[in-house]
Amino acid sequence: MRAIAVTALGGPEVLHVVDLPDPAAGPGQVLVRVRAACVQPADAAARVGRLPGGPVPPPFLPGWDFAGDVVAVGATDSRFHVGDRVVGLVPWHLTRGTPGSYAQLVAADVDWLTELPTALDYATASTLPLNGQTASQAVRMLAGDGPLLVVGASGGVGGFAVQLARQAGRRVLAVANDHDQDWVREIGADEVVTRSAGPAALGQAPAVFDAVPVGAAAANATKDGGVLVTTRPTEPVDPARGVRRQVVLIRPDQRVLRDLVTAAAVGRLRTRVAATIPFERAAEAHRIMATGGLPGKVVLTF
C-alpha cells in the first residue's frame, strides 16, 4: 500500500509518500480501504514532536480520523462485513503511528469503528470522530443548568460543542473567528462575539470550554467557583478563585461515535469541509491547515 509517513521531525516538507506492505486484519479487526482522512492539528503536533510523553521517533504514519470500506474481516469479528462503509478513529495517542490513518489501508480494531450511512460522503464523515467525540466528552464534563461559553466555536471541536450543548438544552455563548459569526449562530449559539473582541465581551460564565485553547482569556471568563475545560494544559488559575480546571483527553467511545454519525446523516449535526486534497499532497494540506481561520476541515482523499 501507499501511505504518508513523517520521515523526520519538522515542517510539512517531512511528509512523504512511502510504499509499505499491506496490513492484515487480525482477530477483532477489519481491514479498511481508506477513502478519506481528516487533517488535524494533532497531526501537525506529532509531525513536529510536540506530544505529551515526548516525540515519536520517525518514521511513522500520522492521522486519527478515517472513512472507507471494509475489504477483509478478522477471524473473530461478526459486526462488519466485506463491503461495509465505515468511519472510525485510530487512537493515535496509543498507536503512535502504527497504524495511522494517512494510509490506503488500515487494520482497525472493530471498537474503533461504526457503520457509515450512505447519506454521508467519506470526506464529511472523516471530520466527525476525533472532534465530535472530544466535544461530546467536554460537554459532559461541563454538565449543568447555567450558560456554557465555548471559545473557538468556529473550529471543529468548538462547533460540535456548540451544537451538542444546545441540543442538551443549554444556553450557549460563543467566541468565533471574526468572519464566522453567522455560521456559529446557525448551529445554535445564542450569543456570539468575535475573536478580536474576546471572551470578556460576554462577561463571565459558570462553565467554559476553551477549545483553542487561548488560556488566560478563557480563565478570566470563568466565574469564581466555575469549571474550565481545555483541549490542552494551560497556565494555572489563581487557586483563590476556586475554578476547577480539567483537560479533555479523547476516550474513543463507539456508542458516542455511532450517535454522532447518525445525527450528521439526518442533518441534526453539522460539519464543514473546507478542502479535499489528494493524499499525495499531504504537505500542501498541512500548509493550508496552518494558515488558520478555515471554514471547515482539510481532508485527504485516497
Results as ranks from 00 to 15, higher is better:
M141E: 08
F302A: 05
R268P: 08
R79S: 14
A176G: 04
R287Y: 03
P27Y: 15
V151R: 09
P199K: 03
F66E: 05
L130R: 05
L128K: 02
G132F: 09
N177W: 03
P59E: 12
V150A: 14
V227F: 00
L31W: 08
V298G: 04
A263G: 00
V70I: 12
G88F: 10
A285Y: 00
P236K: 07
S78F: 13
A143P: 12
Q167D: 10
T276Y: 02
V150K: 12
A5L: 00
A221K: 05
A37V: 14
G97D: 11
G267R: 07
D210P: 10
V56I: 15
A107Q: 10
A24W: 11
A283K: 09
S196M: 07
Q40G: 13
T98G: 13
V32T: 14
P23H: 11
G198R: 11
V17A: 02
A168Q: 14
V139D: 02
P252G: 03
A168C: 04
V175Q: 07
A119R: 11
T231P: 07
T222G: 05
Q254T: 13
P55M: 11
R287V: 04
T118M: 07
V90L: 09
D77R: 13
V229H: 06
V39N: 01
E191S: 08
V261C: 12
G156V: 10
Q29A: 14
A125G: 09
D77I: 03
Q163K: 07
D259N: 12
I250G: 08
A200Y: 03
G159V: 13
R245V: 15
D77M: 06
Q104T: 06
P57A: 15
A168M: 07
W92H: 08
